[in-house]
């Protein structure tokens, strides 16, 4: 197994940065499509951390998890885009705050 050229700490830091960017996007954005994109970023940040760790310790488990995350992301996007279409059709907007109908 080749020794890793990039140190693990850098990989994890990049993953953490990507995750935070995704989380902030999720919290700040109101458009459903951008929220879905932020979710993708977060998923991929997690996947990056797995891959980095897998390379560092020379274990394949992390890469298998990556495959799992990819399938989950695909499924999530399929459902998510379906919801986006429905929301657009019903409410003529993609703003999530407008869509909320609860009085609480």
């Amino acid at each position: 197994m080749n020794p890793l050229i990039i140190p693990l700490s850098h990989v994890l830091m990049l993953a953490a940065l990507l995750f935070t960017a995704g989380l902030l996007g999720l919290l700040i954005r109101r458009n459903v499509i951008f929220i879905l994109m932020s979710l993708e970023v977060m998923l991929n940040a997690a996947a990056l951390a797995f891959v980095g760790a897998s390379a560092h310790w020379g274990q394949t488990d992390g890469q298998i998890i990556l495959l799992l995350i990819l399938t989950i992301a695909a499924a999530e996007v399929a459902v998510g885009l379906g919801l986006v279409l429905q929301i657009q059709r019903r409410f003529k907007t993609l703003d999530l705050d407008v869509v909320s109908r609860m009085q609480g």
């Binding site: 999720l26 919290l27 109101r30 999530l96 705050d97 909320s100 109908r101 609860m102 009085q103 609480g104």
Partner: peptide, 17 residues
């Protein structure tokens, strides 16, 4: 308690975080 159930997805996300 019913204040927390406001249907705003982003509030839920903040609570979660």
């Amino acid at each position: 308690l019913s204040i927390t159930q406001n249907g705003k997805l982003r509030t839920y996300a903040i609570n979660l975080v």
